[in-house]
Structure formats: structure tokens, C-alpha cells
Design a protein around this nucleic acid. Sequence first.
DNA 1: TAACTTCTGCAACAAGATTGCATTATTTTT
DNA 2: AAAAATAATGCAATCTTGTTGCAGAAGTTA
Lengths: 141, 141
Amino acid sequence: MKNLEIILENNQIKSTAMRLLVLQFILSKKTALSLSQLESYFDNADRTTIYRTIKTFVEKELVHQIDDGTGITKYAICEENCHCEIENDLHLHFHCTKCEETTCLTDYKIPKINLPEGFIAENINLVVKGICEKCNNLSSI
Amino acid sequence: MKNLEIILENNQIKSTAMRLLVLQFILSKKTALSLSQLESYFDNADRTTIYRTIKTFVEKELVHQIDDGTGITKYAICEENCHCEIENDLHLHFHCTKCEETTCLTDYKIPKINLPEGFIAENINLVVKGICEKCNNLSSI
DNA sequence: TAACTTCTGCAACAAGATTGCATTATTTTT
DNA sequence: AAAAATAATGCAATCTTGTTGCAGAAGTTA
Ligand SMILES: [Mn+2]
Ligand SMILES: [Mn+2]
Ligand SMILES: [Zn+2]
Ligand SMILES: [Zn+2]
């Protein structure tokens, strides 16, 4: 059994042609992907199928959904043994305003946030916008 | 000159009937408002007019725009002398998953965030989701 | 008053996300 | 293996939010 198939199986996802392709593509990218990006990469595949494929991945916690503030939902693979729900497991995200790519900074966890009395935190989303390393290096040449 | 008119004037916004009404409504609310909420409150006013009114307010830095992760932009009045642009002036936002209201926690500033070498931060958005004080109190009775 | 600028209202459009439903593929049961 | 049940796919259609074009109304200036 192939590597990709094992990943799907580990997440209780039945393996199909489309799912394997989508997973492979997501794994090949270092930055988070939008539905449109997937759509244009698999240009003969159906939008809905990709949409539902990625939704299945999110439900099974194989990928996580990122709201980077652009209004376009991005998706990226979850870390090993990630439980997206658990607060202190969450990393921050970076959106580059130049290349418009969104990066998971998996080693940069969201700091403890103080809230006013009575507020209960369940989830935190922290997105930093700016210039990513790649664009920064390119412009300094 | 009325209070509301002074506020508009202080922000270099010419006063019109619609602008005064929208401002009054925003000021009367403690939580952030969406365009739809404004629209349904002023049910005989035009969507576009409200849209452009609020956009003018944002441009003139009278209100700030909030991306609370719901996919629906919210608006709330700016703090006195606020310059939404300046990073360390930014406060965090709280979105209640029960009442679905978004609150500005103006006294809770976004902490300093460390980034990997080469990344430059220009802007930070921090949204906490959970149960707000009001809903928390209601459920504990 | 005439020229000009700004605001408003209506219609239309765009993009992203989502659903309904029929068809096809896969798995389970008989 | 055939039938029944379940799951995945493809296509069309819809919804929501946000946005623009344009003509007319209102207000300002010369
Ligand atoms: Mn991530
Ligand atoms: Mn705020
Ligand atoms: Zn970049
Ligand atoms: Zn609440």
C-alpha cells in the first residue's frame, strides 16, 4: 500500500483516485491552498468533487482550514497527531501581501491570551500579514 | 450642532441624514455590526447607500472593519484617537459562538508576536472564539 | 442661475461557498 | 454472482456577501 493510501487510512478516509491526487498535491505544497488553486490545478476535475474531497479531509482532521483574512478559505495539511480543536496546539498563520501566499508557522504557537472575566475561549485565530521570507529575500538582492 | 454631527465633522465626513442615522445606530450597539444587520435595521434604506456610508466611515477611520472568521465583515466604532494602522494599537476581538456577536476587547491589545527570521509583520488579526460574558452568565443561572 | 461636486437608489454583477439530484462506483448482503 | 445498500462523483443551480455602473437628486460654489 502506498504512502498516500496509508495517510488516508490513518484518518479513516476511504481512498479514491481524486482523494489521492488532492492529497498528493497538498503535500507537495509548502503553503496553504485555496479551493480555486486546487480547481485550476486539476482542470478537468469537478469543482464540487474537489470541494467535498477537501471537506472530508477537514472533517477527518487530515487538513485544517485557514481563514487568512483574504476572504478565501485556505487549506493545509495538519501536523502529525494534530487535534485542531485543542487550543494550545494551534499555530499562527502568515499571509504575505506580496506573493499572496499563506504559510503555516507550525513552530510558532499562539501565546496565552488573557480575556476579561466571564469570557471563555474555545478557539483562537491569529493571522499575521506582511512580507514573507521568500519575498523579503528577493527584494533585498 | 448635535453630538453626532460633531463626530462626523471631527472625522472630515460631511453630515447627511443617512450618515447620522447609521452612526447613531452603531454607537448604540456594544457589539460589532454586519452590513446585513444595518440593512435590516434600516429596512427602507438602500443596501448600497448603507454600504457606502460604512465604507466612508472606515476610510475616515471613524469605524474599523473586523474579520471575525465568520466570513461576514463586522464594523465597530474606533477608539478615540485610534489609528487602525499602527500595529501595537490593535486590540483583539471576541466572537461568541452562542449569540454570534462580535465584541471589541479594546483594553486587550495583541501581544508581541515572534516570527521566523526574514518575515516582516505589517498587521495582525487575533480573534478568539468562545462564549461571551453575557451568554456565560445566562447559562450559569 | 449655471456649473460643479457629492450623495443616493436601483439594477446588475462577481466570487466563493454550498446544495439537490441523478448517475456511477464500491461495498455488503443474500 | 445477483441484488440491495451505501458512498462518491458530476452537473446545474442557488445563496450570500461584497462590489460596481450609472442616472437622478441634493447640495455647493462661482
Ligand atoms: Mn496551519
Ligand atoms: Mn475592534
Ligand atoms: Zn511572499
Ligand atoms: Zn454570546
